[in-house]
């Protein structure tokens, strides 16, 4: 059976790349001795998949992976399966990673295709904070000034930007993909528990389209925002923290852990 696992990535390990995070969790699971399932074939690997990869340098309280465990072995071990897996993983993660929740996924009906977490993701919440030492260069005197500038930016009819991918460049209206934004004061405490803190208190929260169809990175929004003020964008000025991943339609989003 498959379990969806929510975890945080914080502190200095924000510089660990996605592939190495996968390798890290493979070792966590080996250390935990949880009865993970393996693929068939010459070089069996753990059946594990990750939702939306996190960019290097970004922290998160909303990371997800799905891991398949061996039914028989698992049922022999425990009744409260979610707790059993949570405890096994939590005891073996090291600082920089924290297991936040485990959810057992319903068995797929026979002959139906079950989407992996990656395919379900439709939106993500981000908290963006101005780093220490960049208060002056970003050009806002205060949090209020920053937020009202962002409100004015969002008041535009359209926000045309060019999104570059490996293959091509696309014109798109960014406004359609910014689902929500606030000054961050109402942010769910759990979503920002592992975010970095800075002196200025300048911050923004935004909910962006995410996933395999359209994926908007906060940098793209910030660049358009700062450029709209006639200033040069310096990505180093902002610390980005992912708070949550959602599935479902724009108007009916649900956190992945509430599958």
């Amino acid at each position: 059976m498959t379990f969806r696992i929510k975890f945080a990535k914080y502190g200095v390990v924000r510089f660990i790349g996605h592939l190495d995070v996968m390798r890290y969790f493979q070792k966590v699971i080996r250390r935990s001795k949880l009865p993970v399932s393996y693929s068939q074939g010459f070089s069996p690997h753990q059946l594990m998949s990750f939702a939306l990869p996190l960019s290097v340098g970004v922290t998160s309280d909303g990371e997800y992976m799905e891991v398949e465990f061996d039914d028989e072995a698992l049922l022999k071990e425990a009744e409260k399966l979610e707790k059993y897996i949570f405890d096994g993983l939590a005891a073996n993660t090291t600082e920089g990673f924290a297991v936040l929740g485990v959810k057992m996924l319903p068995k797929p009906k026979p002959n139906t295709h079950q989407d992996k977490a990656m395919a379900l993701v439709s939106a993500a919440d981000y908290l963006i904070r101005v780093k220490d030492g960049y208060e002056e260069s970003v050009g806002f005197g205060s949090q209020d000034e920053l937020y009202s500038a962002f409100e004015r930016f969002m008041d535009r009819e359209t926000i045309e930007v060019t999104k570059k991918t490996k293959k091509n460049e696309n014109q798109l209206n960014l406004k359609e993909f910014i689902y929500r934004y606030t000054n961050g004061d109402d942010a769910d405490a759990a979503g920002i528990a592992h975010a970095r803190r800075f002196g200025s208190g300048m911050q923004l929260m935004m909910r962006l389209a995410a996933g395999s169809k359209v994926n908007i990175k906060p940098d793209l929004v910030l660049e358009a925002f700062i450029n709209s003020l006639g200033r040069e964008f310096d990505k180093n000025a902002f610390a980005i923290h992912r708070m949550e991943l959602y599935m479902g339609e724009k108007d009916a989003l649900n956190p992945l852990i509430e599958c």
């Binding site: 200095v12 290097v56 340098g57």
Partner: peptide, 12 residues
């Protein structure tokens, strides 16, 4: 963020 493989230098 501008060097190759920052993991080389962060320890932990």
């Amino acid at each position: 963020s501008r060097i190759d493989k920052p993991e080389r230098y962060i320890g932990h």
